[in-house]
Amino acid sequence: MTGKQKKAFWNAVQTGLIVMATLIMLVPIAWIFMAAFKSHVDVYQLKLFFRPTLENFALVFREPYNLGEKLWNSTLVALATVVIAIPIATMAAYSFSRFRLRGETVMLVTILATQFVPAVVIILPFFVMFRDVGLLDTRLGLILVNLAIVMPFAIWMIKGFIDGIPLDTEEAAMVDGSSRLQVIRNIVLPMAAPGLLTAGIFCFILAWNEFLFALILTSKDAVTLPIGLALFKAEEGDLWNLLSAAGIIIMLPMFILALMIRKFFVQGMTMGAVR
């Protein structure tokens, strides 16, 4: 083979591998999308062509599944988690970014480390405490423990964004007589707003997909969407068409949100270990 042929051959091999990897990645997702539109009969066969129906999406919202309640719980819990976490994280992130604090490194490492604590360790004492104070199966309880997951990411991510805002404007405003709090409100917050939104979306996805806490803490009233997946079982086994419809309701909003912030996903997840 000449050099040119060799290169063409390599390009073809690479394209083939990329296409194959993409297929492996997309096929399970596509299969769920298809199954969600299949009828009860078609879903139990390996069919590529079938008559699509919207029936499954109607069924999951009816008795006995009531997916609407779970959707509401998931939305409320994830939203409340973010609304509490982001302002608190922003205050801390600003301070970590702009000042030198005593014990700063210890605090930052501890915050980072809490992300790695297995969820199952965190939940044991919370389960005992929530049982004693009556917070089991409440959205409030779920929001509280979700903050444990979200806070380290929020602080580190927002710190990264504020680190990237140049100091000059802030200093100029201080010289002109603005107080530190005015500077934060009038200069830093507007400039950091896209970053705050990104961090908020990232945390929303984490809280939305959270599974173990909700599995252990909720039973009836506060059940979230991922736990709701367990509902779609009948005596004859899993109801795959309904499971798939519920799956779409869980993943589609997250796909859209994740694509919106895809440039920051890696930074967010690795907390600045990869730059």
Binding site: L26, N209, P226, M254
Partner: peptide
């Protein structure tokens, strides 16, 4: 996409 999917799902 796969990373935005709930691990339970």
């Amino acid at each position: 996409l796969p990373f935005a999917m709930s691990p339970a799902l």
